[in-house]
Each structure stands twice: as structure tokens, then as C-alpha cells.
Simulated scan of single mutants.
Amino acid sequence: MGVPAAPKVSSATHPDSLKWYSNNSPTFSWRITSDVTGINVLADRNPLTNPGTISDGLRTFWTFRDVDEGIWYFHIRLRNSAGWSGITHFGFNIDTEEPERFTAVFKSTEITDIKPIIKLEAFDKTSGIDHYEINIDGADAIIWQDDGTGEYQMPILDSGEHSINIRAVDKAGNFKEVTLTRQVEGLELPVLTKYPETLSLGDKLKVDGTTKYPSIQVIIWVQRDGETATEEKVRADKDGSFAYISPEGVKSGPYSVWAEVENDKGAKSGPSNKITITVSRGLIGLIGATILKYLWFILILLILLGINLYFLIYYILFMRKRKEKKRWREKVAPYIRVSQLKELTLELNMHLKALEAMRQKRRLTLRESRLLVHYLKFLKEIKKYIGTDKEDKKDKKE
């Protein structure tokens, strides 16, 4: 049996040798086999110290109390009947004090700056500064790590007074804090000075205004008849004057227009005076509206006229057909009687039946085919005359 293997050490209080902890009572633990008869432990600032060969008893954990700040190392070895094991070294870092120095000041005192910059400077001699926690008006803290500039730019602040609590946190979680107060005021409102009260359909909207800030960006808001407002941006001249002309002509409905100004840092004013512009239809628009208003009435008249025209044409055609029948009857009546026509009809039908029967058996000759067509045509004319004669008798009775 040989000497024990060097133990594997862990720590519930200081598990990562590369990190810092504010707990100054570190605990270490390890496992032993049944042949182990003693242990030897030591903690100091040397990473490779030999704890010696004097046994500290037989146990599987060790706790140190009230350890000073700084970088430390835990050393341990095991003993059995064959001798002492190799040495295990386990580093741990302790920092129990807050940073020694911390200052935070605003870089600018301009009250219209809605995204002010804070200059931060902190020092911690033991573990060093890890990050800053910035809490604005009691909201969730913003975690910020110095990028080397020592300057933190705040998010946009609304108008009013703000309380900013800032913590400088070292690598062990200890912190030092300061509280700042910041008053923010919005930019002064622009004023719309020249605008039309009424426009005609298709006219372009033109608005003039002024602001106390030269060369500042002006946001023009245009809202048509309760719809979602749209924004257009123009820039004031060196005197603070600005003008806006709509890219397209106006449509029907009233328009509301107002303006805001915004500086290069993102600070905005509130809305200016809101103006309302009405849109008239003009002569062509009025004519069109009148036509649309009475369009249903015009449609009904056209439908009625169409119905009357249909019946008129039908009546004319009916009377024309009737007159033609009457003229044909007057032309033929002197030469033939109805009874004779009926007899002729019977005879023609007989001939037609004979020709049909013949066509069932063989193909008709050219002469027979012409006779068939002639008989059919003549029979049609006879029936037409007989029908006309009946109508004539009916007219006489009436």
C-alpha cells in the first residue's frame, strides 16, 4: 500500500479561486479513505506552502474565522501508514470592505439636456471596481461597466425632477453609493404664425412658424379628419423661422396641424398651438356633390324611361305584324276560299307523307327533294292564311 493521493478540495463559501468574496470565514471540504490516519492543513498567502508533517487530526472539512482581506491559499495533505500524500493548494480571495473612494457628477448642467452624461470615478484597493448600478427614480437598476471613459450617458429623461442613485460595486459585491438630483426642462414651444384657414381640394398646405432656437429641427404634425397624424421634418433657419409645404394636395375633411422642436441631443418641446384648416370643394366639387346627391333619382328616371321604351317598341312591332297579316289576307282572299285551302292542306299532307315514307327507304331525287321543300313552304303559307282569317273574324265579332 502506498501513500494516499493528494485530496480534491472544494469550498461551499469560496468555490471559484479566481473570484472575490466578501465572506471572511471560508470553509473547505474533501474526502478521505479508510486508511487515512491524519491530515495537515494551513492557510497563508504563499501559493506553494508545505503545511508540514504535524497532524491536525482526522476530519473532512475545515473553517477559518475572521480572515483578513486579500489573496489566500489553503494547503492540505493526508497521511496513512505508508506516509504523507502530495500537497493540494486551493486559492481563495476575500474583500469585506466597500470601495475607498467614489464620486459621481453631471458633466453638464444644461437643464434642457434630456440625456445627461455622468462622470464616475471609484477606487477599491483590494478587489477593484467591477461595475456600477444606476437606479433612476426607483426603477430597476441599470448595470454599467466602465468602458474606459468613466462617463455614463443616461437614457432620455422626461421633464421634471429626477433622483439618480448610483452604486460603485467591487468584485466581491461590496458597494459605495451616492445620490444625485437632476432637473430637466423641455424646450420652449414653437409658434405657428401664418397659415390658411380654408383650402380648396387639391391645394397644397403651407404653414409658417418660428422658434427661439436657430437651425433646430422642427417636426410638423398633420392630422386629417381624425386619422392618425403623420410627421414631416423641416429645419429652422438661423433666425428660428421655418416653413412647411405639403408634398401633395389636400383632400376633403378638416386638417389639424401643430409643431414640435427637437435638438441634436434628442430634447423635445411640447406641441405648439394647434390650428385647424377646413377644405372646401370648389365649384367643380359642388357640382359633383350635387350630381352624387341626386344620382339615385336620376337612376330611377332612367329605369322608368327604359321600361316605357321597351313596351313602346313591343307595341309598334306587334301592330306592324298584325298589319302585314291583314294585307296578305286582303291580297289572297279574293282568289281562294278557306274550305278549299283546307282540302289543299289535306292533299299536301298526303304528298308529304308519301315523300317522307320514300325518304325512309331511299335517297330522294333532286326533283323529289325540291317538291318536298315546295310543299312545306306552301303548307306554311296556307296555315298562315287560315290563322289570319280566324283573327279577322274575331276582330269583326268584337
Rank of each mutant, 00 (worst) to 15 (best):
S252N: 07
S200N: 15
S25K: 10
Y132F: 15
T198N: 12
T230Q: 15
I76G: 06
T365A: 01
F61M: 11
E368N: 09
Y314G: 08
S29Y: 05
Q153G: 04
S108V: 01
L371V: 07
I76M: 07
I298P: 02
S22E: 02
T37E: 11
D56R: 00
D237A: 02
F106Q: 13
I87H: 09
S22N: 08
R320K: 15
W328H: 09
G160I: 01
G173F: 11
L302Y: 04
W258Y: 13
R362Y: 02
F61V: 03
K361I: 06
W72D: 02
H374C: 00
G209H: 08
S252V: 00
D56C: 02
G86E: 12
I336E: 14
A43K: 10
Y255N: 03
I76E: 02
I245Q: 14
S25C: 10
Y255I: 05
G249D: 06
P4Q: 06
D16A: 05
H374P: 00
I136Y: 12
G160E: 07
K331N: 02
F311S: 12
K119R: 13
R101H: 13
N273I: 07
L78Y: 04
D95S: 06
G288H: 08
A289Q: 14
W62N: 09
Y255Q: 05
L205G: 05
